[in-house]
Design a protein around this nucleic acid. Structure first.
Length: 553
RNA sequence: GCGCCAGUAGCUCAGCUGGAUAGAGCAACGGACUUCUAAUCCGUAGGCCGAGGGUUCGAAUCCUUCCUGGCGCGCCA
C-alpha cells in the first residue's frame, strides 16, 4: 500500500522534472510517508514538498501544488490535499483497504511476512547463561527478547540462527566441580567445611547425589581428576535442566556452541596468533595484551594472564571470529546491560581483525528488579538465594511471563512483581489480547451454528463494511507487515506487543459497538470476514511472541 | 573521575527516519450486561516531555552543559 503510493509520488516528481516545472533534479532516496496522528489529515502524509523547498528555492506549498495536480488523477487516491506548511495528505480509496482483507485471508499464517531481510544470514546469540546453575529470572527477559527478536527477523525475511554459547571452560566450571566434589564427600559422611566461594545452593547436592548414583564414590581418584570429572558431569547435568526450562518457555536453540571446543580445536591460539601477526598484541608484566585502545577502547585488555591461563575475552575473540567464518553476515549478541562495558573491546577486536564493527550488534537487556509484594529481593548465585525461571513460569504462567518481558523496550528497566503478575492475571494485558482472539473464535462457533459461512476472498459484499470503524480496522491490519519490518530493522520486538494491544483495543471496541451476526446475511458474512482477518493477524502476532492464541477463555 | 542506559499524566510506560492538537494502561470519578464471552466497552479528569542553551520552516526526538536514578569501569565470568 505504502510502496504503491510511494512509487506514484516518485513518478509525479519525475514528471515535474521532465516538464521543467521543477528544476533542481533532486531525487530523494526515500520518500517519507507517515501515518498522521490526526485522521483528518488522511491516511498518509508526506513532507516531500518541504524538503524540496530549499534546493528548488520555491515555497513548499507551491511545489506541493505541482505534485498534487498530477497525483489527483491516480486511482489509488480518493483525495489529495495540501495542508499546513506544505504537507501533502493522501486519502486512499476505500477499495484499497478492502483489498487488504483479501490479502490477510489468502495469506493466512504468512500474512505479515516480509522480504526486506533479503535472506541476510544473521545469528542471534542469547541466554548463554553459565552452566553452573539453573536459569533464574534475570535470564528470562533476555531469553524471551532474544527469541522474539529472532522470530521477528525470520518473519522479515532474514535467515536466522538461534545460538546458545555454553561457557564450559574457565574458572567457574572448576569451582562448580570442586563444589560438587565436596558435596559428594559430605554425602559419603565426611565433615566438610564448605568454602565461601563455592556454589552454596542446594542443587549442587542434587548433582552430587546423581553423580554418586551414576558414576560412583570417586574413591582413590586423584583430586584434580575428580574435580574435572565432577565439573564435566555437573555441566552436562545442568545443561539438561537449562534446556528443559527453555523448552518449557517455548524456546528452542538451533545450536549449542561449546567454549571448551574452541580450546580443543586450538581456535583460540589461532586467533591470538593472527592478532600477534598484525602487531595488535604485546607482552607486559608476563601477560599478553590486546591493543584495543587503538580502536577506541579505554584501556588495553588482557588475553593471557600472567599465570598462563586465558581470559574470557580470549575465547570470545575466537568465538566471534568463528561466527563470521561460519558465514553470518551479521551477528547479534543479547547481553545483560551490566556487561555493556565489554562492548568497546569486542568492537575493537573485530576492527583489528578486519571486520566492520557494525556487523556485531549487541542488544543490552536492562535489569529485571524482582519483587514480591513490592519488596525487592537481591539475588546471588553463590548465596543460593535466587528464584529460578522455572518457579516463575510455574507461578505466573508462560504466556503472561513472556508477554510481561516483552512489553517494554529492552533498554529500560523492568520491575517484575511476582505477586502482582499473578494477581493481575485478570487485567494483565496478555489476557486482553488473547481475549480478542477468543471472542472471534466464539463468533465463528455461533456463525457455524446459525449457518452463516465465511466468504471466500472475492465473494464479500464490501458495501456492507462501510462503517468508519470497519475501515479503521482494515487500515490497522494493513500496517502489520510494516510493524514487523520496523521491529526487525530496529531490533525492537516490543513494537509487535504495542501493535497487538492496539489491534485488540480496536477490535473490542468494534465488538461492543456492532454485532457481527445480524439479520442481514450479506452484512453478517462481510463482518465475519473482517473479524476473521483480525483473528489471523492476532494469531500471527502472538505466535511471533511465543504466546498462545486460545480459542476459548 | 570516566563510560553506558534511563528521566514523558498520581503510578507503569508508548511515541516509527525530526512533523501538524504529545498517547495508552493502571489508579480516580460517572455510565453500559433479556443482545455473538462484561477477562469487554463508553465518557470525565489528569502534562514546564528532568533543567538551561543551541541546530531549523518545525524538537519529546538531533547537538551541548548541568541535575537525578540504575549499571559498569579486574590478569572475574
Amino acid at each position: 500500500m505504502k510502496t504503491q503510493l510511494r512509487q506514484a509520488i516518485m513518478a509525479a516528481l519525475k514528471d515535474c522534472y521532465a516538464d521543467g516545472q521543477l528544476t533542481s533534479g533532486e531525487i530523494p532516496e526515500d520518500i517519507l510517508l507517515e501515518i498522521p496522528k490526526n485522521p483528518d489529515h488522511g491516511d498518509f502524509a508526506t513532507n516531500l514538498a518541504m524538503t524540496l523547498a530549499k534546493p528548488e528555492r520555491k515555497a513548499p506549498r507551491q511545489i506541493a501544488e505541482l505534485l498534487v495536480a498530477r497525483l489527483q488523477e491516480n486511482p489509488l487516491c480518493d483525495k489529495v490535499e495540501i495542508a499546513g506548511p506544505g504537507f501533502i495528505n493522501f486519502r486512499l480509496s476505500a477499495s484499497c483497504w478492502y483489498e487488504v482483507l483479501d490479502r490477510v485471508m489468502t495469506g493466512g499464517k504468512d500474512y505479515g511476512r516480509s522480504t526486506v531481510g533479503k535472506g541476510t544470514r544473521i545469528q542471534v546469540e542469547f541466554v548463554s547463561a553459565n552452566p553452573t546453575g539453573p536459569l533464574h529470572i534475570g535470564h528470562g527477559r533476555g531469553a524471551v527478547v532474544g527469541d522474539a527478536l529472532a522470530a521477528v527477523l525470520q518473519a522479515a525475511g532474514y535467515d536466522v540462527q538461534r545460538e546458545y554459547y555454553v561457557n564450559d571452560a574457565g574458572n567457574q566450571v572448576t569451582t562448580l566441580g570442586r563444589s560438587i566434589l565436596l558435596r559428594l564427600r559430605e554425602l559419603q559422611g565426611e565433615q566438610i567445611d564448605f568454602p565461601e566461594d563455592g556454589y552454596q545452593a542446594a542443587y549442587v547436592t542434587d548433582v552430587a547425589r546423581k553423580l554418586r548414583q551414576e558414576v560412583g564414590e570417586l574413591e582413590g581418584v586423584d583430586e584434580a581428576e575428580a574435580i574435572e570429572l565432577c565439573a564435566r558431569f555437573g555441566v552436562a547435568e545442568i545443561l539438561t535442566w537449562i534446556e528443559a526450562d527453555l523448552a518449557e518457555f517455548g524456546i528452542r536453540f538451533d545450536n549449542w556452541y561449546s567454549e571448551k571446543s574452541l580450546y580443543d580445536r586450538q581456535m583460540v591460539d589461532q586467533e591470538l596468533t593472527k592478532l600477534k601477526a598484525k602487531g595488535l598484541s604485546f607482552e607486559q608484566d608476563d601477560a599478553l595484551w590486546l591493543r584495543t585502545t587503538e580502536f577506541g577502547d579505554d584501556k588495553d585488555r588482557v588475553l593471557i594472564k600472567s599465570d598462563g591461563s586465558y581470559t574470557y575475552f580470549a575465547s570470545d575473540v575466537a568465538y566471534h571470529m568463528e561466527k563470521f567464518d561460519r558465514g553470518f553476515d551479521r551477528v547479534i549478541d543479547v547481553w545483560g546491560a551490566d556487561h555493556h562495558g565489554y562492548i568497546p573491546r569486542m568492537k575493537a577486536m573485530l576492527a583489528g581483525l578486519g571486520h566492520p564493527p557494525e556487523d556485531l550488534e549487541v542488544l543490552l537487556i536492562q535489569m529485571v528488579n524482582l519483587l514480591r509484594d513490592g519488596v525487592p529481593f537481591t539475588m546471588g548465585k553463590r548465596s543460593g538465594n535466587f528464584i529460578t525461571l522455572r518457579e516463575v513460569i510455574d507461578e505466573v504462567g508462560r504466556d503472561a511471563c513472556r508477554f510481561f518481558f516483552l512489553i517494554r523496550r529492552c533498554d529500560s528497566q523492568l520491575d517484575f512483581d511476582l505477586e502482582l503478575a499473578k494477581q493481575q492475571s485478570s487485567d494483565n494485558p496478555v489476557y486482553y489480547v488473547q481475549y480478542a482472539h477468543a471472542r472471534v473464535c466464539s463468533i465463528n462457533r455461533n456463525a457455524e451454528e446459525a449457518g452463516v459461512s465465511l466468504p471466500l476472498p472475492g465473494e464479500v459484499d464490501y458495501q456492507c463494511l462501510a462503517l468508519p470503524e470497519e475501515l479503521a480496522l482494515a487500515k490497522l491490519l494493513a500496517r502489520f507487515q510494516e510493524v514487523i519490518e520496523g521491529a526487525a530493522l530496529h531490533y525492537e520486538p516490543h513494537r509487535v506487543v504495542f501493535y497487538l494491544q492496539d489491534l485488540a483495543a480496536q477490535f473490542h471496541s468494534y465488538y461492543n459497538r456492532q454485532r457481527v451476526l445480524v439479520d442481514d446475511l450479506n452484512t453478517s458474512r462481510a463482518r465475519l470476514y473482517l473479524v476473521n482477518a483480525v483473528r489471523i493477524v492476532l494469531e500471527n502476532a502472538l505466535t511471533l511472541l511465543g504466546v498462545s492464541a486460545p480459542e476459548q477463555m
